[in-house]
């Protein structure tokens, strides 16, 4: 009979030690909305489960030099209720709030969403577009990497044995910056993104884009950063030509699969559509 060990440490150091010393497969348990589903269906049978929700620093959102540090086990609902986070990064909060339902929201975390490494994870393109990083703790100390460097393929990450994510960091937000995330699903909720698009732009006083980052989900094995799409916006206002160029660049970057959730043709077209629509919202939020 399968019976995994379970631990609920109260410090990062303890958690890292447990993970590093584990024999066999060890998994972090944040909200469990991916992990428990995988356990139940028998896809995954870890030998050790380390619950990180008892580690106080992983449960809080703090501000740091104008930016944010979001503990790795903070839930979507907690992010949504934070006093200033959704004012500063509405795209990120709306992305995490798209996950599941009210019940799921009480548990699901950004970091779980990221480390589950689904190509369709909703909060990830939004974090990538905003230039977020993660702080990783391990037996050899801490390191910080851009969010897009964590997933390496469906279900796999660049975390080494004994490593865990302790926080997501959002940079101080430059003036006249706006972000947005949109996903397409056939229904209105409780579904997996067919395509997701995150856009973050910074404008000058005249409304011309000076910096941009565009990210796409569910159209490749991992989240995509699309520099050509950003280039289509930089130096331009939100006009038809820029949007058409953005649409084309987004489509060109797609490397989707044909599966039960969408065809290559459809995913590619919708990626362009969502990139345009997210860009329009991001420009508006940036003050255009």
């Amino acid at each position: 009979m399968y019976a995994p060990s379970f631990a609920a440490p109260t410090t990062v150091a303890e958690a890292v030690q447990l993970l590093a010393n584990a024999s066999g497969v060890a998994r972090v348990l944040a909200g469990g909305t991916d992990l428990l589903v995988q356990l139940r269906s028998g896809i995954l049978k870890p030998d050790l489960i380390v619950d990180t929700k008892r580690i106080p620093e992983l449960r809080t959102i703090t501000t740091e030099g104008g930016g944010y540090r979001i503990g790795a086990s903070v839930s979507g609902a907690e992010a949504g209720e934070h006093a200033t986070l959704s004012r500063d990064w509405p795209g990120i909060v709306e992305a995490v709030e798209l996950i599941g339902s009210t019940q799921i929201q009480g548990r699901a975390s950004f970091v779980g969403n990221l480390c589950n490494a689904s190509p369709a994870a909703d909060s990830v393109p939004a974090l990538v577009a905003a230039g977020a990083t993660v702080v990783i703790a391990g037996p050899n100390g801490e390191r910080e990497v851009p969010v897009e460097e964590v997933p390496t393929g469906p279900g796999s990450t660049s975390l080494a044995k004994g490593e865990m994510v302790v926080a997501v960091k959002l940079p101080p937000k430059p003036a006249r910056t706006g972000d947005a995330y949109l996903r397409f699903i056939p229904r209105t909720e409780m579904d997996i993104a067919v395509v997701g698009a995150g856009v973050c732009v910074t404008l000058d006083e005249g409304g011309t884009c000076t910096a941009a980052k565009v990210s796409l989900g569910a159209v490749a094995p991992t989240v995509l950063v699309v520099p050509d799409a950003a280039a289509a916006l930089i130096g331009n206002k939100l006009d038809d030509a820029a949007l058409a160029a953005l649409d084309a660049a987004a489509r060109a970057a797609c490397k989707p699969i044909d599966d039960k959730r969408g065809t290559i043709e459809y995913r590619t077209k919708v990626a362009g559509v969502l990139a345009r629509r997210a860009a329009a919202t991001a420009f508006k939020r940036a003050g255009a």
């Binding site: 056939p186 229904r187 209105t188 909720e189 409780m190 579904d191 997996i192 039960k260 959730r261």
Partner: peptide, 16 residues
């Protein structure tokens, strides 16, 4: 059958 579940066999949800 590739979609034997309510995730990919899409009956309407209330918000639809």
């Amino acid at each position: 059958l590739e979609n034997p579940g309510f995730l990919d066999y899409r009956i309407p949800v209330a918000s639809d």
